[in-house]
C-alpha cells in the first residue's frame, strides 16, 4: 500500500499544510510518496525530501504546473494515480480545488476534510458545520482524501532522507489560464497555522475600529481573524474569515472579540484549546463555548488587556 501526498507550495517553499497531510498519510502506511507539481520547484522537492516519514519525492517541474491550475494538476496526479492506494491533499483552497477532479476521473468518491484515520478505508469527517461527526467507509479501489490540517500534528520538517525523482510533466490543457494574483500582505503569522488567533466581529463597528485588535495581536504574537459579519461589512479582508466557509483554525488560544458566535463561526474555531470571548452581550452564544468569558465593552477591555499583558 503506497500513499501519495500532493504537496502544497508556492514554487519556493513547502507549506506547513503539507506536513499535516503527511502526518495523516503516516497513519495509513509507511510508504509515503510526495508529489511536488510546480515550475522551478526543485527547492520545494528538497524540502519535501527532508520531511519525516517521506520515502520518495516525485518532482513534476514544468510551465503547465506553474500556477497550480486545477486542470493541469489533476492531470498530473492522474498520470501517477494507478500506483497508489490513497491520494491525499490538504483541505486548503488548493487541495479542495483539485482533489474532487481527480476523484471523479478515477470514478471514486472523494472523502473531504478528514479528522481521523480509523483504518485504511474508514475515516471521520465533520458534517453540518461541525455539529456532527460522520464515520465513513469507502469501498473504492483508490481513496482520494482531503485532510483537515488542524486535526493532525504536522510531521517534523527535518530528518527525512527521501530521494527526489523527476517525473514527466503533463501537457497544458489549454482550457484555462492564469491571469493574476493579489496577495494580502501581512507581517503576522499565517492564520491557519498560528498558535494564537485574535478575531474580531461585527461588534468592532468599522474597519478603523478593527485596528484596535492590532496591538493585542502584536503583543500576543497572534494572527488576526474575523467573523463573516466583519468580512462582509468590509472591516477585514476575506482571507481572514474563520468559519465553516472560511478557514478552520485550532490554535492554543483563540480570542473572540465582538463576535456573537453563530454556528458557522463556531465551526471554524471550536477545536481551539482555550477560547476567550469578550462581548458586551452576556447572552451571546460565544459564551457557550468560551473557557473564559468577559462581559464588557471591547473598546475599554481590549486596551486594558494590552496593558495587562
Amino acid at each position: 500500500m503506497t500513499i501519495l501526498v500532493i504537496a502544497e507550495h508556492d514554487n519556493a517553499h513547502l507549506k506547513g499544510a503539507s506536513l499535516n497531510a503527511i502526518a495523516a498519510a503516516s497513519k495509513l502506511g509507511s510508504d509515503i510518496h510526495v508529489l511536488v507539481a510546480g515550475n522551478g520547484a526543485q527547492a520545494v522537492a528538497d524540502q519535501a525530501a527532508q520531511a519525516a516519514g517521506v520515502t520518495k519525492v516525485l518532482l513534476a517541474d514544468g510551465p503547465a504546473l506553474a500556477e497550480g491550475l486545477a486542470e493541469n494538476v489533476a492531470a498530473q496526479v492522474l498520470a501517477l494515480a494507478p500506483a497508489y492506494s490513497h491520494i491525499l491533499f490538504a483541505a486548503t483552497a488548493a487541495g479542495k480545488n483539485v482533489a474532487p477532479r481527480v476523484a471523479a476521473k478515477l470514478d471514486v468518491a472523494q472523502i473531504s476534510d478528514i479528522l481521523s484515520v480509523e483504518s485504511p478505508d474508514t475515516f471521520t469527517r465533520p458534517i453540518y458545520a461541525g455539529n456532527a461527526i460522520a464515520t465513513v467507509q469507502s469501498s473504492d479501489a483508490t481513496k482520494v482524501i482531503t485532510v483537515r490540517t488542524t486535526a493532525f500534528d504536522g510531521v517534523a520538517a527535518n530528518g527525512g532522507t527521501a530521494t527526489v525523482e523527476a517525473v514527466q510533466v503533463v501537457a497544458d490543457s489549454g482550457k484555462s489560464s492564469f491571469v493574476g494574483r493579489e496577495v494580502a500582505k501581512s507581517d503576522r503569522p499565517e492564520l491557519a497555522g498560528a498558535a494564537i488567533v485574535v478575531s474580531g466581529g461585527r461588534g468592532l463597528g468599522s474597519a478603523d475600529n478593527f485596528k484596535i485588535l492590532g496591538p493585542l495581536a502584536d503583543k500576543l504574537g497572534a494572527a488576526l481573524g474575523a467573523s463573516r459579519a466583519a468580512v462582509d461589512a468590509g472591516y477585514a479582508p476575506n482571507d481572514w474569515q474563520v468559519g465553516q466557509t472560511g478557514k478552520i483554525v485550532a490554535p492554543q488560544l483563540y480570542v473572540a472579540v465582538g463576535i456573537s458566535g453563530a454556528i458557522q463561526h463556531l465551526a471554524g474555531m471550536k477545536d481551539s484549546k482555550v477560547i476567550v470571548a469578550i462581548n458586551k452581550d452576556a447572552e451571546a452564544p460565544i459564551f457557550g463555548v468560551a473557557d473564559y468569558g468577559l462581559v464588557a465593552d471591547l473598546f475599554t477591555a481590549v486596551p486594558e488587556l494590552v496593558q495587562a499583558l
Binding site: 471514486v108 468518491a109 472523502i111 474508514t122 465533520p126 458534517i127 461541525g130 455539529n131 456532527a132 461527526i133 460522520a134 464515520t135 465513513v136 467507509q137 469507502s138 469501498s139 473504492d140 471550536k270 477560547i275 452576556a282 459564551f287 463555548v289 468560551a290 473557557d291 473564559y292 468569558g293 468577559l294 462581559v295 464588557a296 477591555a301 486594558e304 488587556l305 495587562a308
Partner: peptide, 24 residues
C-alpha cells in the same frame, strides 16, 4: 452511494467555561 456512513456522532463537547469579572 459509494461511501457508507457507519455512524454519526456528536462532536466532543467542550467543558463549561467561566465568566471572569475583569481584565486582570
Amino acid at each position: 452511494p459509494r461511501l457508507k456512513t457507519l455512524k454519526v456522532s456528536e462532536p466532543p463537547a467542550r467543558s463549561a467555561g467561566i465568566i471572569v469579572p475583569d481584565v486582570a
